[in-house]
């Protein structure tokens, strides 16, 4: 391509990206709009009379929800990694008989719609008194990420040279030792990818929150937004400000860990 051709390409790409991200821009714009300008026709394209009133509202009312989401997200991440890493090691390197069946079941599990899982969980949690509880929500949210986690760990750990593991064995390390001191440190990238997505999916979850935690003492931010929409649908700057804050983890992940995101998306489609 010539120099000018490239410049035109970049210009067109900027326009396309702008179009694609317009809803995101609009969310930010509305979050900064004053109450009295909200229903203006035509709406202001820029927050000329910008206000932080919406964000003050978030600080005043949504902090507990955000806190719950952080706790649930971290819990889900821990649980997911703790389950996926050993399973990945077993499926990639130890390959016990019946392991194939287990991977198949994990793949099938991924295809079950969340709303169906939610109904089953509801029935189970009702009996065991886990409704409206944080541990209950963590376990339910982890079902969104565990199959993916095992998949990514298996794919990644298959790439660890067998000689390295054998060397560890010859030095007298047992399976547990080998796993802890050789496999885990080498799989850092896979573990980061799994953790990022587990946190993000749990942070974004609405289905489980709405069915299992609605009306609970600790509700996540997705329910915070949902109640907002239901209760006072006049305060769109506050709703959109909450939405902006709820989008921060996604934005952070994209800025700080872009390569893991792309790897994660492709990994979703690459299965043995």
């Amino acid at each position: 391509m010539t120099g000018t051709g490239k410049r035109w390409h970049t210009a067109l790409a900027v326009v396309l990206t702008g179009l694609m991200l317009f809803p995101v821009y609009w969310m930010i714009n509305v979050s900064l709009t004053r109450e009295q300008d909200m229903r203006k026709t035509p709406p202001d394209l820029f927050p000329l009379h910008g206000t932080l009133a919406g964000y003050q509202e978030v600080l005043g009312e949504q902090l507990p929800y955000l806190g719950t989401s952080v706790v649930v997200g971290l819990g889900t991440t821990l649980l997911t990694v703790a389950l996926s890493a050993p399973a990945g090691y077993a499926l990639a390197k130890l390959r016990p008989r019946g392991g194939g069946v287990l991977s198949f079941l994990l793949l099938a599990a991924q295809m079950v719609p969340g709303i169906i899982m939610a109904m089953g969980f509801y029935a189970v949690y009702l009996r065991f008194g886990l409704l409206q509880s944080v541990p209950g929500l963590i376990v339910a949210d982890s079902t969104l990420a565990v199959p993916f986690g095992v998949l990514v760990c298996t794919a990644f750990m298959s790439g660890i040279p067998g000689e390295l593991l054998q060397a560890a064995r010859i030095d007298g390390a047992g399976h547990l030792r080998t796993f802890r001191s050789v496999v885990l440190p080498m799989s850092r990238n896979a573990l980061v990818t799994v953790s990022l997505f587990a946190f993000l999916w749990s942070w974004s979850d609405f289905v489980f929150a709405a069915t299992l935690d609605n009306g609970g003492r600790y509700e996540p931010i997705t329910l915070g937004i949902y109640h907002y929409i239901g209760n006072n649908n006049q305060q769109w700057n506050a709703i959109m400000a909450t939405a902006v804050v709820a989008s921060l983890p996604a934005a952070l992940i994209l800025v700080l860990a872009q390569r893991f995101v792309a790897a994660g998306v492709t990994a979703g489609a690459v299965k043995e």
Partner: peptide, 25 residues
């Protein structure tokens, strides 16, 4: 072309946002 990698990464934003955020927007 210049910026192609960065702009392509920005295209991921809608997929990463919580669905309730996208839906209410």
């Amino acid at each position: 072309f210049p910026l192609s990698v960065t702009l392509r990464a920005l295209f991921l934003v809608p997929w990463l946002l919580p669905l309730i955020v996208s839906a209410s927007t």
